[in-house]
Amino acid sequence: MLLVSGCGSAPAEPPASPPTVQVWPPFDSKRARTDRGLLVKVQGGTLTQVLVYEGGEPVPGKLDDTRTTWRTDWTLRPGAEYTVTATATREGAPATVAMGRIRTRTAARTFQVAATAPLPGETVGVGMPVVIDFDAPIEDKAAVERALEVRAESPVEGAWRWTSDTQVVYRTRRWWPSRQRVTVTAHLAGVRAGDGLHGATDSTFSFIVGRRQTSSIDTRTHQMLVLRDGKAAQRMAISAGMATTTEYTTTSGIHLTMDKGNPVRMISPGREKGDPGYYDLMIDHAVRISNSGEYVHAKDNVWAQGRSNVSHGCVNARPDQAAWFYATSLRGDPVTITGTDRVLEWDNGWGFWQLPWEKWQQGSALREMRDAGGWVPKR
C-alpha cells in the first residue's frame, strides 16, 4: 500500500479592524460650543494618549476607567482654537491616530471675577471664608459653582453658598487647619451662566491660613479671652453694649474679624447732630466684627471695663490691650460673643458660622439641584 502525504496551510486570520476615534466637537468646527467641554471616544480599542492644546498650553483632561473616553476637566475658552491628537490601539490591529483642530464660538456677553476675599497672598485666620463677587448676575448658578475649585494643603470639608446673584461664599465645616496654603481657581472660561452669557477667563489666587487665634467674650462677666494655638495669649477686661436699644446691644454669636483701622470714625446710627445720644468720634485701634457697626476697639473708660456694659454696641478694652489685639488680628479670626439677647444674623458681615452646617449646605446650587432630582455631572 502506498501512503501519500502532502503539506497544506490553514486559512489566515483576517487582521483586526483598527479602532475608531470620535471627537466632539467635531474636527474643523468653527463655532463649537464652549460649555460642554471636549470629548474623545474610541470604539473597538482603548485610548493610549490624548493631547489637547490651546494657545500652546496643554488642556487638562482625564480618561475614564475603561480608557475609552477622555474629556476635558473644564469648559472651553470662547473664541479659541484647540488642537487634538488622539491615539487608540487594539491588539492585532494598526493604531489609529486622529489629529485635527476645533475653534470655539465667541461669547455675546461675558462675565468674570470682580473681587475676592481673601486677597491674593493674604494671611488670614482659621475662620476665613472665601468670597467671590462676579461682575454680572449669574442665572445658572450650578454651572458656575461646578467650575469653582478649592485646593488646600490640609484638605477639609467645605461648601459654597450663594448670598446673591453676584456673590458666592465658601465656608469650611470646621476651622481651617492652621499654617497652610489654600488655592482657589474659578474655571470660568466658557461656562454658560445665562442666556448668551459666558465666562471670559479663568481666575486663580492663593492665600495662607496663619496661626489659630480665637477669642471669646462674655458680656455678663465683662471679660475677653484670646487663645493662640490653644493657649491663653491675652485676658482683657471689656465693656459691651448698654442694650438700651437694639442698635446699642452687642450681638451674640460667632463673629469673624473683617478689617481694622486706626483710627476709625464712628457716628451714631439714625441720629443727627443735636439729637439726644448723637456722637461723632475717632476711635483708635478698631477691629470690625460685623456690618452693623460692631468693633473691638480702644477706649479709656477703665472704670467700666470688667464691671458694666456702657458702650453703643461695640466691645471696648483698655487702650494698650486693644492695641495688642489690633496688631495681632488677622481677617477671619473667630470672635465668639455670649450673654446678650440680640443674635448675630448669619448674613450680618461674615456671620456665616451662625448657620449649622446642614443649613449652610442648602445654599449650594448643586445641593439644590441634587435635592430636586436633577443631574449634576461629575468633573
Rank of each mutant, 00 (worst) to 15 (best):
L3T: 13
G6F: 15
C7T: 15
G8P: 05
S9W: 08
S9D: 10
P11M: 15
P14G: 07
P14E: 13
S17F: 03
S17W: 02
W24H: 10
P25H: 01
P25T: 00
F27H: 10
R36Y: 10
L39V: 14
Q43P: 08
Q43F: 10
Q43R: 14
L47R: 00
E57H: 14
V59E: 03
R71Y: 02
T72W: 00
L76R: 00
R77Q: 11
T85P: 03
R90F: 04
R103K: 10
T106E: 09
R109L: 11
T116R: 09
P118Y: 09
L119S: 15
E122K: 07
T123R: 15
G125R: 04
V126P: 02
G127S: 05
V130L: 12
A136S: 05
P137H: 04
E139H: 08
E145I: 01
A147L: 01
L148I: 04
E149R: 07
V150F: 10
S154W: 08
P155K: 09
G158S: 06
A159L: 04
R161K: 07
T163Q: 06
V168Y: 00
V169F: 00
V169S: 02
V169P: 00
R171H: 07
R171S: 10
R173L: 06
R174F: 06
W175Y: 14
W176A: 02
Q180I: 13
V184L: 11
A189M: 06
G190N: 08
A193Q: 06
T201F: 06
I208G: 10
I208Q: 14
G210P: 14
Q213D: 11
I217M: 01
D218F: 03
R220L: 14
R220I: 13
Q223N: 14
L225P: 00
G230A: 06
Q234N: 12
I238H: 03
A243E: 13
E247N: 11
E247C: 07
Y248S: 14
Y248E: 12
T249H: 09
T251I: 05
S252I: 05
S252E: 06
H255S: 02
T257V: 06
P263W: 05
M266V: 15
S268F: 08
G270Q: 09
Y278R: 13
Y279E: 07
D280I: 08
D280A: 12
D280G: 12
L281Y: 12
I289G: 10
S290G: 06
N291E: 14
S292F: 07
K299E: 15
V302E: 11
V302F: 05
G306N: 01
S308Q: 15
S308R: 15
S311G: 01
V315M: 05
V315G: 03
N316R: 14
A317G: 10
P319Y: 05
A323R: 12
A323Y: 03
Y326A: 01
A327C: 04
T336C: 11
T338Y: 14
D341G: 02
R342I: 02
R342D: 02
W346S: 05
W346Y: 13
D347A: 10
F352V: 13
W357A: 07
W360T: 00
G363E: 05
G363M: 04
A365N: 04
A372E: 12
K378G: 15
K378W: 11
